[in-house]
Nucleic acid binder design. Structure first.
Lengths: 220, 220
DNA sequence: TAAAAAATATGACAAATGTCATATTTTGGG
DNA sequence: CCCAAAATATGACATTTGTCATATTTTTTA
């Protein structure tokens, strides 16, 4: 029996999904909660093998949830449930080690397949999503490469900082950046210094790596 | 009818696959060739919708093949066939826009599904491979970012050079690399200097960017 | 408008990086 | 064993990078 926890803020969806899965044979739904915090509680109690996690939720969203959970329980597999137009979330969740990505509109058998595949160490990605991943994927900041940046900090970088990061991620030197952005070289250096401080990185190379993985190395 | 071209150097595999697919109903195998060059010929004649391409082939391999074909015929879908331990190739092919990645050991129905999904604009990735993609995927080198390295030169980098590049792509300093690879810091610097020369790049940041985009920033 | 906040700049400095010429050591044929 | 090639090392050097304290300028706002 594979122990499964469902995390979704819509009670109706959550409960009915639970009932269906439960009746599908080799799946044991050990919990069904509405948010990440409740999930942590339930995990501690029941130690599920696989977690089905909605991506859009009030409070911590599924991406954050995946991060928190995989961080604390790396052995638990997380399958992310999403609607078709949730692009922004896709890469984040994969980055944190989600074992799959399923459209909410998938069939029951696809879902149970995904649970079993995830349980076995594989990953299931809906074809529709896979093509997005392939075409748009830029990178995963995978903690195994040592470059980790707090998303919240990354979020409130201002316009200039972003421009400078993009420039670095395209391989420009300080002098070139200075020329491009019409700032003195010293100012550019100061900006970089402060960016590195904020993101807790050591040098422009680490910054470039992070930025490339975030797909920030493209004009437009 | 979906027109399919098979590219694989093993004649037996290629021919039998062709026969099976042909008999599966809505697939029309318009060609079955042993190498990329022959494939280009066949494409010109038959304009297939989907190409099944082996990854290991003498001459141009499947990655190069995907690149060449997608470059000339972006509308043709390429599904890459691989064995389980072909990690090195995976990211390359996806980068060039492959519409799927299948283990050669997959079932016939998985294969026909994949063809249909690819034809419809989706992408099919074997669960086993998907998990690798998720855990190791690093980035797609999109030529629009200005860091270009001659593939032929890149190909004959030796073991140590690769190790150093990987280290740089993970954000390590020269001192750290020296410690990791048991070389003196000076030697590391010399290596880097020569790598930069070979690849025609200016500094470690550009090298890191390139390497990350090639997916070289992961252990093992 | 005056004060406060921000953006931008400067210069000094230490550390890291990249280049080069030149050893020294290791290794694989012959 | 010897030699030549390779891998590795060293030191000197110029440049770039990152940090910091401290201006100067511009913008915002009270």
């Amino acid at each position: 029996m594979i122990k499964v926890l469902i995390v979704d803020d819509q009670e109706l969806f959550r409960e009915s999904l639970g009932i269906i899965l439960q009746s599908s044979g080799d799946i044991d739904v050990t919990g069904s909660v509405c948010c990440v915090d409740d999930a942590l509680q339930s995990i501690a109690e029941n130690k599920p093998d696989v977690i089905l996690m909605d991506i859009r939720m009030p409070g911590k969203d599924g991406v954050e949830g995946t991060r928190v959970i995989k961080n604390k329980y790396p052995e638990i597999k997380v399958i992310v449930l999403t609607t078709f137009d949730d692009d922004e979330y896709v890469y984040g969740a994969l980055k944190y080690g989600a074992s799959g990505y399923l459209l909410k509109g998938c069939s029951l058998s696809e879902l149970t397949d995904a649970v079993q595949i995830a349980y076995g160490g594989g990953a299931m990605i809906n074809p529709e999503i896979a093509s997005k991943v392939i075409s748009q994927f830029s990178a995963m900041a995978n903690s195994s490469n040592g470059i980790y940046v707090d998303e919240r900090v990354a979020k409130d970088l201002n316009e200039n900082e972003r421009k400078i990061i993009m420039a670095i991620a395209r391989g420009l030197s300080n002098k070139e950046i200075s020329g491009t952005l019409f700032l003195s070289e010293g100012t550019v250096r100061n900006y970089i210094s402060s960016i590195l401080m904020k993101l807790n990185l050591r040098d422009r190379t680490q910054l470039a790596i992070w930025a490339v993985q975030k797909g920030m190395n493209h004009k437009r």
